[in-house]
């Protein structure tokens, strides 16, 4: 059988082998493609994506005060920072940082810091929103779950978390109104 199915180059694959392999490959690729809708159905749906932005009125927030708002199911920390806190954040050399970012890169108006209040380690909400809570060694936030310390710019300084608290996309609609998302 094998002799008379050799092609003219002397390869011993028969036409039947070729058909088997290509049919198998098509079935495999087709099967994988058919799987995608099942997997993708688990991703965020259109209605979840639609809840993407919130507007916050910050006219009642005093200097040195922090407030929490909920955005996409997560807390967002808004901090009206004191001069001292801003100075501390600005004066920190980048070489001291695990995830180097300047304070200017993280703020639109230095007085207002807006960060997602979810620890970049395993997702706990760090403490420090009220003055009575521990704020860590750098006066920003302290995550009690596994001991991550964030500074007054929400940057990671110590502990297991790898990254700074993320700054969500946000814009000042007026002097006292922030749109997040």
């Amino acid at each position: 059988m094998s002799d008379d199915t050799q092609d003219h180059d002397g390869h011993s694959g028969s036409r039947r082998d070729f058909l088997y392999l290509s049919a198998g490959a098509f079935a495999g690729v087709g099967g994988a493609i058919a799987l995608w809708p099942f997997v993708d159905s688990l991703n965020p749906s259109a209605d979840v994506l639609a809840l993407a932005s919130v507007e916050v009125d910050v006219s009642q927030v005093d200097v040195g005060q922090r407030v929490t708002v909920k955005w996409r199911g997560k807390p967002v920390f808004i901090d009206r920072r004191s001069e001292a806190a801003i100075a501390e954040a600005v004066d920190t050399p980048l070489s001291d940082l695990r995830d180097p970012e300047t304070d200017a890169q993280r703020t639109d108006r230095p007085e207002w810091l807006v960060v997602v209040g979810v620890c970049t380690h395993l997702g706990c909400v760090p403490l420090g929103q009220s003055a009575s809570e521990p704020r860590g060694e750098w006066g920003g936030w302290f995550c009690p779950c596994h001991g991550s310390h964030y500074d007054t710019s929400g940057r990671i300084r110590k502990g297991p978390a790898p990254l700074n608290l993320p700054v969500p996309e946000h814009a000042f609609l007026t002097d006292t109104k922030i749109k997040i998302g």
């Binding site: 997997v39 688990l42 991703n43 965020p44 749906s45 979840v48 996409r72 199911g73 997560k74 979810v118 380690h121 395993l122 997702g123 706990c124 779950c145």
Partner: peptide
Amino acid sequence: VITNLFSAIPLVGDSIVTLLWGGFS
């Protein structure tokens, strides 16, 4: 905390976590 473990996977970690959650939290 447990679902966030998967965010440690390089490159695709965050997409996997979003996939597990079906949302942003």
